[in-house]
Design a binder for these strands. Structure first.
Lengths: 121, 121
DNA sequence: ATGAAAATGACAACCATTTTCATTTCTGTT
DNA sequence: AACAGAAATGAAAATGGTTGTCATTTTCAT
């Protein structure tokens, strides 16, 4: 198993908590860090698994990683500028539980994302 | 400029109004239609431009196209056997609209999936 | 110091998507 | 029907993000 290279996380923080693997790699190289693209990807995967970061997709399909608080929440993302708002999902939790019960499912989890165009775009 | 091949649209409809370019292409070939993957992509681009379809991203980054104005549904998936139930998302639609308004976003879309363990597992 | 396990990175493989370009089909005009 | 020009098509190559491979280096406990 591969562990996260701590410099990757700190670079993601420095990038504003929101960047793609390629961007993180370029940033690190520009700052003189010697690190391979492969290691950046691996570190991000590991951070993902540990739920320290979160992954979304840009319009062009590129994956962008962002730091994630540990409380369960959802995101409202602007499709054109990437601005992100964290959202409480109380309504969804209830809905998920109700639907699960109705169909005899248990151990319910859910994922939900909202996307649109923000006021500035 | 390229126009949409009408068979692409009708195949997307037949697929439940929700499919990737590759899936549409495979479906058409399985049904004996002679069409190139390139044309499928081109047709989808054109349908996008005409706002007849909408594009989202799967978790793996693949683009999935959806008929616009299609009241879409969500899925409740069993993690162990894969059994899937289609679900109405009225509650989510309302929630999405409310949250969007609250934050000044417009043209709101959303994706949501529920997963758990079904009664048989 | 020594060996085992983990981490690393150069490179190749993958796969969805786009571009290129030669060929075919469609369209309207004579 | 014949023709020309435009649009559509699709095979193949190019693109680009991401993942897999594997030999080498580093880490770490004994």
């Amino acid at each position: 198993m591969s562990r996260s290279n701590p410099r990757v996380l700190s670079t993601l923080e420095r990038a504003g908590g929101f960047a793609s693997a390629q961007e993180i790699h370029k940033l690190m190289q520009r700052e003189g860090e010697k690190i391979g693209l492969t290691t950046v990807y691996r570190s991000l995967q590991s951070l993902l698994g540990d739920k320290i970061v979160d992954v979304l997709r840009r319009d062009d399909g590129e994956a962008i990683y962002r730091l994630c608080g540990d409380s369960h929440h959802h995101h409202l993302v602007c499709k054109s500028c990437g601005k992100t708002v964290e959202i409480e999902g109380g309504a969804i939790e209830k809905w998920a539980k109700a639907v699960a019960l109705e169909h005899g499912f248990r151990d319910i989890g859910h994922s939900a994302e909202l996307f649109g165009t923000c006021a500035d775009c």
